[in-house]
Design a protein around this nucleic acid. Structure first.
Length: 265
DNA sequence: AATAGCGGCAACCGCTACCTG
DNA sequence: ACAGGTAGCGGTTGCCGCTAT
């Protein structure tokens, strides 16, 4: 017996890999899986396949249930509201789709991942980076990390009840600092922003926060200026590409992000 | 009308984290 | 502490339908 065959036999569910059905699920398979979960609950996916009489491995059953059959799933298009949350959380956490999905009830990580790739990634291609801009961002990244460390140390000395707001503001400043090279391309004062997007939300605050919120929420607002939009997406996407560490650096403030997102839910 | 190209989405794959004995 | 099994995650692939030529 070859090692390949042995590995197959030891795969998920402990059954022989050969003989598992693959590809699109049929209505009958869906019905069997739904009925099984209704009777026994989800979990123990390796045995679900066998008990439900499905020729699918456990991994496939879990995926089908989680991404498609779960009764609490939302159907239909991602709303502009959800989109803005996705944008915001992706800027903070990067490609941590399951984390992002937890903030969007009824949406799956797979759905959000697909949505991001088809709707947003292409935007990066529209405004290809050049090396000068890349260098500038790299410098800013280094400054970012230094300041992040210093300020986190300072924050640790502050009282606990003040901490969430302080970290929140800190993170927003950092993101803004990475975006501000485009500042001349977008309105920077509250008056200008108000003129261009009277319905946009500018919570709480400082000039910088307002600028960021202008950029983030105006993507879906009533100002169809492709240039500004591209600038924003370029900026956010490059945050992701060049600053994988941003997500890590911001890990400490997940709680504050929850506070930020909560009002939208 | 035919078909090439593209976008959207479901599903698969490989890896890692977690759990349990 | 360790190993094996299970669950979950993110990246990738392939199919299908729509649109432009």
């Amino acid at each position: 017996m070859s090692w390949g065959v042995m590995a197959g036999q030891l795969a998920w569910g402990g059954l022989i890999e050969e003989g598992w059905r693959k590809g699109p699920w049929t209505a009958e398979e869906d019905r069997l899986l739904i009925e099984h979960v209704r009777l026994h609950g989800d979990g123990r996916w390796s045995s679900v396949a066998r008990l439900a009489g499905l020729k699918r491995n456990g991994k496939s059953c879990r995926l089908r249930w989680v991404n498609y059959l779960r009764p609490d799933l939302k159907r239909g298009q991602i709303t502009p509201h959800e989109e803005s949350i996705i944008v915001e959380l992706h800027a903070r956490w990067g490609n941590r789709w399951s984390t992002i999905a937890r903030s969007l009830p009824g949406r799956t990580d797979n759905e959000i991942k697909n949505y991001w790739r088809t709707h947003f990634k292409k935007k990066a291609k529209l405004s290809p980076d050049n090396s000068d801009k890349a260098r500038t961002r790299l410098l800013k990244r280094q400054q970012f990390q230094q300041q992040q460390q210093q300020q986190l140390q300072r924050l640790q000395q502050q009282t606990q009840h003040q901490q969430p707001l302080q970290i929140n503001q800190l993170d927003m400043r950092k993101i803004v600092s990475l975006l501000d090279e485009n500042e001349d391309k977008a309105p920077s004062t509250p008056q200008m922003r108000q003129e261009m997007a009277p319905n946009a939300i500018y919570p709480n605050t400082t000039e910088e926060h307002g600028f960021l919120y202008y950029n983030m929420f105006n993507v879906n607002a009533s100002v169809p200026e492709a240039s500004n939009e591209d600038i924003l997406w370029d900026g956010l996407w490059n945050l992701d590409d060049l600053h994988g560490n941003v997500g890590v650096a911001c890990e400490t403030s997940k709680a504050s992000m929850q506070n930020l997102v909560a009002p939208f839910c």
